[in-house]
């Protein structure tokens, strides 16, 4: 039941990410709510859960976009795995680990996207990192922080979804 509920929420978040999240865009930069969802599950469930969720969510996002299929699944699977390792075993979920994981996962994900999608003639790696990737990372991180402080998030963050 929990798994089905999580799948439903995951699909809903993907739909929201591709449909109405543009409303939150600031100068074309929008947060990644799918990543926030992935981090919560990977921290609670460990690296295996992180990889599976990451791969599937990334694949759905790839299907919805016009980019190269496989990039999203690779990125989210890697992010899910790394975050899952950070919360693996007895460590479990903590606010501190969640915030660090969110930042790290978002950064890794955006660097991978940068590598695949950003034309390098638009600037050097550092320029692209500072002006393209980091704003998304900070925006996602801020939204993730706001989310985790809400009472609703407490229900989902203290247990594994699978």
């Amino acid at each position: 039941m929990n798994l089905l509920k999580s799948i439903g929420i995951g699909v809903l978040l993907v739909v929201l990410q591709i449909s109405i999240l543009n409303l939150l865009a600031i100068r074309g930069i929008k947060p990644d709510i799918v990543l926030i969802f992935l981090i919560i599950h990977a921290l609670a469930g460990g690296p295996l859960v992180g990889v599976i969720w990451g791969f599937l969510l990334g694949l759905i996002l790839d299907s919805a976009g016009s980019g190269m299929i496989g990039v999203g699944s690779l990125t989210y699977a890697l992010a899910g795995f790394i975050v899952g390792q950070m919360g693996a075993g007895k460590l479990g979920f903590s606010l501190q680990r969640y915030l660090i994981s969110l930042f790290v996962a978002s950064l890794i994900g955006n660097v991978i996207f940068l590598y695949f999608y950003q034309p390098w003639e638009n600037g050097s790696f550092w320029e692209l990192l500072f002006f393209k990737a980091l704003p998304v990372v900070f925006y996602t991180w801020t939204l993730g922080l706001i989310w985790i402080l809400t009472p609703f998030a407490a229900k989902t963050s203290d247990r594994s979804a699978v």
Partner: peptide, 21 residues
């Protein structure tokens, strides 16, 4: 090793998808 194997599969599958894009 389960997570590592899963990650390996995910990475291989992702690159395979990219190659057949």
């Amino acid at each position: 090793f389960q997570p590592w194997i899963a990650l390996l599969f995910a990475v291989i599958l992702s690159f395979a998808l990219m190659a057949t894009d």
